[in-house]
């Protein structure tokens, strides 16, 4: 199977607080990889290292090597902005741009990167919204504000926005944690559909969710990778006692 992301002994800090203590793993193409673990275990930090978003927080620091499609994204010749363009990201809380319409929200990545051709933009907006399973709900009001949508729709709008720049990889940082159960279900279905075309890394604190949607699961604890395996193995026959404790504790 093709490896898309190779993470090599990555360490990360917020100021003097070390949140990742040497993580190494490989992420495979067109698979959903879930990162699970208790709050504060470093799972959000980890995913933010993958598109160099960790370093935008003042005082944050990263060490180690991450290869994406064989390119070392932390090499000094690499522009972090380029990396972020190639990787889509969806955040915990839906964050559509409040001053923009639905259309412009989706087109924002392309527009602000210099795409001006109206036809290209129109096609891209429609396609991205279709992929995010939002097109039918918003096609008649593309000129309304993105804020006029419900929370679940806003999150799918953010997914469409991330897809519009045509990334290969989609990072999702607890994308359903602020949503109601029905919206959550829609996001989960969407993840399943999207993996046909994208490599998805998803952080979740909800283990059932990880079990339902992911192919691989990584369990993080206190900034260390405890176990990384096929999802089924993690949930049925974990090799590490701590994984088992965490999983059984949560499943009750």
């Amino acid at each position: 199977m093709e490896k898309v992301i190779q993470v090599n002994d990555v360490k990360a800090w917020y100021g003097s607080l070390q949140t990742l203590k040497g993580i190494s793993l490989e992420i495979f193409k067109n698979r959903v990889t879930a990162i699970i673990g208790p709050s504060g275990c470093g799972k959000s930090t980890f995913i933010r290292c993958l598109n160099r978003m960790h370093e935008v927080v003042p005082g944050a620091k990263v060490e180690g090597k991450i290869l994406i499609n064989k390119t070392d994204i932390y090499s000094s010749q690499v522009d972090p902005v380029e990396i972020r363009r190639k990787i889509g990201m969806v955040f915990q809380k839906p964050n559509p741009f409040p001053t923009m319409t639905i259309y412009n929200n989706v087109a924002s990545g392309l527009k602000l990167n210099g795409v001006k051709n109206k036809r290209v933009l129109d096609e891209s907006v429609e396609k991205s919204l279709r992929r995010a399973a939002l097109w039918d709900e918003v096609k008649d009001r593309l000129n309304h504000s993105g804020m006029s949508l419900s929370g679940g729709q806003q999150q799918r709008l953010c997914i469409a926005r991330a897809l519009a720049v045509e990334p290969d990889i989609l990072l999702m940082d607890e994308p359903a944690s602020a949503l109601d159960p029905i919206s959550t279900l829609r996001i989960e279905e969407l993840v399943q559909e999207l993996k046909e075309q994208y490599t998805i890394v998803i952080v979740t604190h909800n283990m059932q969710q990880a079990a339902r949607i992911s192919d691989y699961t990584a369990f993080l604890l206190n900034g260390e990778l405890i176990e990384y395996d096929i999802t089924e193995n993690i949930f049925t026959k974990p090799t590490d006692k701590r994984t088992e404790d965490y999983i059984t504790g949560r499943f009750g």
């Binding site: 522009d79 902005v81 380029e82 363009r85 392309l110 990167n113 210099g114 795409v115 001006k116 051709n117 290209v120 096609e123 891209s124 396609k127 720049v165 045509e166």
Partner: peptide, 23 residues
């Protein structure tokens, strides 16, 4: 697929604006 077409069109102007963007 159509994807690739869009991607080509999308990437070229991207790179152009990029050169101006760093300064």
């Amino acid at each position: 697929m159509l994807d690739k077409d869009i991607k080509k069109k999308a990437i070229n102007p991207k790179d152009k604006s990029n050169a101006q963007n760093i300064p």
